[in-house]
Nucleic acid binder design. Structure first.
Lengths: 216, 216
DNA sequence: ATCGGATTACCACCAAATGAGTAACTGGAG
DNA sequence: CTCCAGTTACTCATTTGGTGGTAATCCGAT
């Protein structure tokens, strides 16, 4: 097996133990070859330039230049290395931020080792790999992305805005109906339309959104 | 106690027409006697001192010294007149504000005349009278009053706070269960306890409360 | 060492609330 | 006249909230 058949990998992570773990893992797969390690973003970028690895495994939480910044630098340069985030954070902000910044994958450190190897293989073939646990979160983020940012552009009618405000006070359909002196069924129709227009799935989400928006 | 069996009444309202209406109404009841009228808070207070009426009917929205201020002055002095708010405002702030300031009653101007007379009779007997329409609102205000102002004093456990945060993101029980990897039934129990501890009635109220509290 | 509480997790059952879908009527604006 | 906002009514499946339990664990006080 010639050296060009294997996938060269650079690991950037400030945790020595974790780098060791990854090194062992990579050693288990004859198709992968660890060509360098870096403990921080700066040296990671230098190494990436010097070694031109096929894949970069990048941690998010590092002291100094953090993972996201490092990612941006790596992606801004003239490397064509694929960068896979390998981190513990499953927070929406981190995941979405990394993917928006051009990450080619986002894997969680708590994945099974075999699973990680399988995903790295996928990544080498040019696939974007993402931990299963995050797909749902990702779907939500995308939905929220397309969500209107204000009542103005949400296309809500007068009546619907009025009812949304009441939702934001925690009122039930019954209470709203009594308050506006119309049938409860009508409220349900309005709420349904509000959810559709705002691309939300429940009155709770609508209430939270409205409160965030400052609709008191 | 005294020479007259009738109840003396002072009306303070900046609306001449409305004072006229009240005067006519009072004239219909032989047990009531209108002893004075005032168009603003200042003269109302003077008249109250001079006439020492049994009841004062006080409007809330008046130019100059408004109804609430007038009420406070009346209640701070050495009068023992009972003050009944008679106004159009059914807003929670007004109602709660007036009652907190010591109002002995809160009646709405859109009540039926006979109903108003009946309530004035109740008031004369020392009862606190409040328009039926407002009782629900009042109950809510009281509940909110006794509501804990922070998670700290709410007595929520770690787990409950954790779940409350998820409620504040609009998550359903099912999603929370998957996220925490415990049974959905368990989430329901936790939510029940949260509602009980926070004295709330639905997850929507809990979510709104949490967001207001800044629990992101 | 044992008792009692607090916490966490689980269960089943039931009533009410919610959300989705479909259909239809009205009144006003264009 | 047509379109739209608002209204009502009717199903249906799902979700939620409440009741009333059981049980394991941990911790502090007796």
């Amino acid at each position: 097996m010639s050296e060009t058949e294997t996938t060269s990998i650079l690991v950037i992570d400030d945790h020595p133990l974790f780098r060791k773990g990854v090194a062992d893992l990579i050693a288990m797969d004859p198709g992968l070859r660890l060509v360098g390690e870096a403990a921080d973003g700066e040296s990671g970028v230098s190494l990436a330039q010097a070694l031109a690895p096929d894949l970069v495994l990048l941690d998010l939480n590092m002291k100094g230049m953090d993972g996201l910044q490092t990612l941006k630098v790596l992606k801004s340069g003239e490397f064509d290395a694929r960068v896979i985030m390998l981190t513990v954070s499953d927070s929406e902000d981190d995941v979405v931020g990394a993917l928006r910044a051009g990450a080619d994958g986002y894997l969680l450190k708590d994945m099974e080792p075999e699973e990680i190897l399988a995903q790295l293989e996928e990544a080498r073939q040019g696939r974007v790999v993402i931990s299963d646990r995050l797909t749902e979160l990702l779907a939500r983020a995308l939905r929220e992305d397309s969500r209107p940012r204000s009542v103005a552009e949400s296309g809500l009618t007068e009546r619907e805005s009025e009812i949304l405000k009441m939702l934001a006070r925690g009122y039930s359909n019954k209470v709203i109906a009594r308050e506006l002196d119309i049938a409860e069924g009508t409220i349900k129709v309005h709420v349904k339309h509000i959810l559709k227009k705002l691309k939300l799935r429940s009155r709770v989400e609508a209430a939270v959104w409205a409160v965030d928006q400052g609709h008191r």
